[in-house]
Simulated scan of single mutants.
Amino acid sequence: MKHLTIDPSTSGLPTKDHVATKPFPEAKTTKVHPSNAKEEDTNATLYFIGTATTILEWEGIRILTDPNFLHAGDHVHLGPGVSGTRQTNPAIDLEELPRIDAVLLSHYHEDHFDRLVEDKLRRELPIITTPHAKSCLEGKGKESFTAVHALDFFESLQVDVKDDGGVKQKKPSIKITGMPGKHVPPGPLSIANDILKAVPPTNGWMIELGYADGPEQFEDGYRIYISGDTLMVDELKEIPERYKGQNIDLMLIHLGGTTIPGPSMPLLMVTMDAKQGVQLMQLINPDLTIPIHYDDYDVFMSPLSDFKKAVLEAGLSDKVVYLDRKDQFKFNVRQSSGSGMGSESLLAEKLATQAV
């Protein structure tokens, strides 16, 4: 397994031109899931910015997913002759981000890593992504990103919090594993795309929040599956097989029914629509699902209302929490008896009081 050590006290702000410390953005609405924990018992937060962009915060660590901070009316390039127009604004602007410790990037596409983000992010900010995206991010000459970590399907990286010298048996740790995903359906179009490289390869992710007391000694406390931009393909069936007997607490599902070339000529769907989204819920069977990536661009043809209807018809409404931009979801990462309050938890409290 690969390893990455993060020191939140020295991570700094995410962009090159950040000039002042920013507080963590205040949520419009906070939601919890009663089967996990009451709000006062939670210790982790997922903040929804828009598209597939979220901030995951736990034990002083902040991970930013698929950063896209364009505004309504801005355009993105999605492939040869294919573009999309943003319909919404993000909950916050790029310059309003607080300290970020790492970026989790599902694939190298402008609606997940826009030109503004690419220009402004600090080059040394750790980015965990696909092998294809790594080659793109490291191939920019003097503007190359310098801390890119690639994960292929079912390859894992353990992110550890730097030990500040405190005494604690187990330290907060995050295990990130690449999950399969396909933007283009199997068949002749997929073969053509492999040759033309029009639509980039994409990953899903399994994020396991937990504690470790040494290399390869990891205990999971909360498991999050992020689907990434994928269709309902056979490769996804391997996920419940690999995690048989291991509970998946939360699924973040990329929806929208993205159709290219665009709304005027919807020839090919490249992300899940409502029907496929429900099928994925039934396949993965998480305790809870939160839909994201559902209405931000004009190439999204399956609105959130379609998914809500399909969920209701499938009898799964009690297993879904809906977030609007600027909403947050709070949850509890389970701790074993040997991973109580220690130096890393104290670090989280210290960082919180510094509002960074």
Rank of each mutant, 00 (worst) to 15 (best):
residue 194 D to Y: 00
residue 195 I to Y: 09
residue 197 K to G: 02
residue 197 K to S: 10
residue 197 K to P: 01
residue 201 P to Y: 07
residue 201 P to G: 03
residue 202 T to L: 11
residue 204 G to N: 08
residue 205 W to C: 05
residue 206 M to F: 01
residue 206 M to E: 09
residue 206 M to T: 06
residue 207 I to F: 00
residue 210 G to F: 08
residue 210 G to D: 04
residue 211 Y to H: 15
residue 211 Y to E: 14
residue 213 D to R: 09
residue 215 P to R: 07
residue 215 P to S: 07
residue 216 E to S: 15
residue 217 Q to R: 14
residue 218 F to C: 07
residue 218 F to A: 01
residue 219 E to L: 02
residue 219 E to S: 12
residue 220 D to Q: 11
residue 221 G to L: 09
residue 224 I to V: 14
residue 228 G to H: 11
residue 228 G to C: 10
residue 229 D to L: 06
residue 230 T to R: 02
residue 234 D to K: 13
residue 234 D to I: 00
residue 235 E to L: 04
residue 235 E to C: 09
residue 237 K to E: 15
residue 239 I to P: 10
residue 239 I to V: 15
residue 239 I to R: 08
residue 244 K to M: 04
residue 245 G to N: 11
residue 245 G to C: 06
residue 246 Q to S: 09
residue 248 I to E: 01
residue 252 L to V: 09
residue 253 I to G: 09
residue 253 I to M: 13
residue 256 G to Y: 03
residue 257 G to T: 04
residue 258 T to D: 02
residue 259 T to I: 06
residue 263 P to D: 08
residue 264 S to E: 13
residue 265 M to L: 12
residue 266 P to Q: 07
residue 266 P to I: 09
residue 267 L to V: 14
residue 267 L to Q: 13
residue 267 L to I: 13
residue 268 L to W: 04
residue 269 M to Q: 15
residue 269 M to E: 13
residue 270 V to L: 13
residue 270 V to H: 02
residue 275 K to P: 01
residue 276 Q to F: 01
residue 277 G to T: 04
residue 278 V to A: 03
residue 279 Q to R: 09
residue 279 Q to T: 09
residue 282 Q to H: 01
